[in-house]
Design a protein around this nucleic acid. Structure first.
Lengths: 173, 173
DNA sequence: GGGAGATACTTAACATGTTAAGTGAATGCG
DNA sequence: CGCATTCACTTAACATGTTAAGTATCTCCC
């Protein structure tokens, strides 16, 4: 193994040091978004946890609270969850009696999901602290800036929505 | 009661309809961030997938490519992964010979992780398309707006970092 | 009206997120 | 020195993300 010259600073022998040219990793857009979201969610998680809810379960309850009932697919779109995740979570929420399910009469494939009374009660117990946290975030960051940020995020989403739609050219089979 | 009046439109009986007052769900900051990030990652995932890498594995390789070697904890911070996730992924990356590990001589608890030659080779094969995608995103959204967005995201993170640090007053034990 | 294809989910399998507990090694202090 | 504490990581356990398959139902066209 006389393969490498001695390393002056320490006994290690790194295989590479900036061999592949790329942007600074920590400043990439995905990382920025990830970190920002984590910073926000970190504020909410403890409160949700106290009430025995995960972030996703909370999303589902919130989505359901605003409407009477929804098909699973529609709910997935609203709560921004993939079908399989939603399936599992609905199973658990139903077991906890937080939601109710009934298959549609007209189309036996569809099932209509709605929040139960217990679900509403749970939501009511979580909402105040959740709203308080959101208010605190808004105040810290600034309401105007927050609105601007959300505007930009929406535009970003728009820009990319067009992109991801019509092209599956390269390595699809 | 007669808790609820009959529902005129259909045979269902929803337990609640906007019973708990909350902001419009789809416009909450966490959702905006989640959707934006998903829109971005959707662009990258296919390319990574072709090379047999997940998003997180790619983050680790990128982080390692810029430095010679790093302790696991340091790497977790850089790649923004929790310890347990990182442990598993490192185990797998090591099995695939994409990284190398050696325990530090001075402190047997620490292990120094570095990217291997194979790892560098793999990175080199992914980087071009990854950079191209990033360039496309930048162009679509606008370089200036992108910079602004990242600036705001950083500020948001800052605002909340202070908040989450010094307070564990309420229901901690 | 019958069968091919599309739909609405659900299951399965594997990877990661998240919290708690475990393990071995270093540190500090009596 | 001895031992409790802290530290760096790993394992474990459970929930979700992600893709692929499976299942039942529905649609449409011949």
């Amino acid at each position: 193994m006389a393969k490498r010259p001695a390393d002056p600073a320490n006994g290690n022998e790194p295989a590479a040091r900036q061999v592949v040219p790329m942007r600074d990793f920590s400043r990439s857009l995905p990382m920025s978004l990830l970190r920002a979201r984590e910073a926000v969610m970190r504020q909410f998680r403890p409160s949700l946890r106290e009430h025995g809810l995960t972030e996703q379960q909370w999303r589902i309850l919130r989505a359901l609270a605003a409407i009477e009932a929804a098909e699973v697919t529609e709910l997935a779109r609203t709560a921004f969850l993939l079908g399989p995740s939603l399936s599992r979570i609905l199973r658990d929420l139903e077991a906890r009696n937080l939601i109710e399910r009934k298959t549609a009469k007209a189309d036996l494939r569809r099932s209509m999901v709605s929040i139960s009374k217990e679900g509403v009660k749970l939501m009511a117990s979580v909402a105040p602290s959740s709203e308080a946290i959101y208010a605190e975030i808004t105040q810290r960051f600034g309401a105007r800036k927050l609105a601007e940020l959300q505007e930009m995020l929406g535009e970003l989403e728009q820009s990319l929505a067009e992109l991801g739609a019509g092209e599956e050219a390269s390595a699809e089979e």
